[in-house]
């Protein structure tokens, strides 16, 4: 297991000085991700907050090669980079071992980029795709995505008199990725930073595509205190809002099974996006029911797949 001091001192490929908001989960994810991957890594990032805050010309936060193409195609672009890498290696023009990592927000991953991601995963390119999942299109001003949780208020699913925020549950992209039968799929949370770092290393070591979905607190979009991002990353797990698990060659493992489960409200009501639910307890119940069912299913999958 990595030591946080070691990680902080040598793995600084995503430098400070970027323009992200205070308390941004996405930049913590990139910092850990680039540290875990090391210097021989090429990143491809989708349009979205992380690309915007890190590459304002003529500056860049990236000390490793970074490429941005468009919003919905970071997986396809990375599949091209990976193909070039293999082709040039075959021709003896490259001899280094290079990691290829694509990333995008949940909008660029669950919605507009889903086809491109699915295609790249199905084709079996050796690349890691990381989704920083803040549960909305934050860059354009907090619009709903298919990763926005049930009940959350966003600018295109605003909590109003009639409709109380987003009325659909989250798309389960991680399961969709597992259904691609790729060698490694995981969910992570920055509170469990060492788990995330280990997952990145594992993912980069498999011979084929891998996918990690990381919960990414967003103070602006969630209406939370900037100082609460890491705490929320813990609460999300101990309330089963977000499960930290992996699926390696079809075998599930829940990496964090909260010893003391906390009431969902503790996670929800630290965020303005859920505040209207205080007056709508039946909606909190519906969310709780859904999340519990997800967790129970996950426990069953873990049991069945390891039999």
């Amino acid at each position: 297991m990595a030591n946080i001091k070691e990680l902080a001192s040598k793995g600084n490929f995503f430098s400070p000085g970027h323009r992200a908001c205070a308390g941004c989960g996405g930049t913590i994810i990139l910092r850990l991700l680039s540290a875990a991957a090391g210097e021989n890594t090429v990143f491809v990032g989708a349009t979205g907050c992380m690309e915007v805050v890190s590459t304002i010309y003529p500056y860049t936060s990236w000390k490793v090669p970074f490429m941005h193409n468009a919003f919905e195609n970071s997986a396809a672009t990375a599949s091209g980079v990976e193909s070039a890498y293999r082709a040039l290696k075959k021709r003896g023009k490259i001899n280094k071992d290079i990691n290829i990592i694509a990333f995008g927000g949940d909008g660029g991953t669950y919605d507009i980029g889903l086809q491109s991601l699915s295609g790249a995963m199905e084709r079996g390119h050796k690349l890691l795709y990381v989704c920083y999942d803040n549960g909305a299109y934050m860059n354009t001003g907090i619009q709903r995505s298919s990763a926005t949780p049930f009940g959350a208020s966003t600018t295109t699913s605003p909590a109003g008199k009639e409709i109380k925020g987003k009325m659909q549950h989250r798309k389960d992209l991680t399961e969709i990725m597992i259904a691609h039968n790729i060698p490694y799929v995981a969910q992570a949370s920055i509170f469990y930073w060492n788990d995330f770092v280990e997952k990145v290393k594992k993912a980069l070591n498999v011979d084929g595509p891998s996918f990690i979905d990381v919960l990414s607190p967003c103070p602006l979009g969630w209406g939370s205190e900037p100082s609460a991002s890491v705490e929320l990353s813990e609460l999300a797990v101990s309330t089963h809002f977000w499960n930290v698990f992996e699926c390696e060659n079809g075998k599930y493992k829940i990496n964090v099974k909260p010893k003391k489960e906390k009431p969902l409200e503790e996670f929800l009501f630290k965020q303005q996006r859920f505040k209207h639910l205080k007056n709508n307890p039946e909606l909190v119940e519906e969310l709780r029911r859904y999340l519990n069912e997800k967790y129970q299913n996950l426990l069953k999958k873990e049991e069945c797949s390891n039999r």
Partner: peptide
């Protein structure tokens, strides 16, 4: 690279060309 769409085909071309 037999992509799943032309959008991805040209995206992969862009990635590959940038990669030399």
């Amino acid at each position: 690279v037999p992509t799943e769409s032309e959008h991805s085909a040209i995206s992969a071309c862009v990635g590959a060309a940038a990669a030399g």
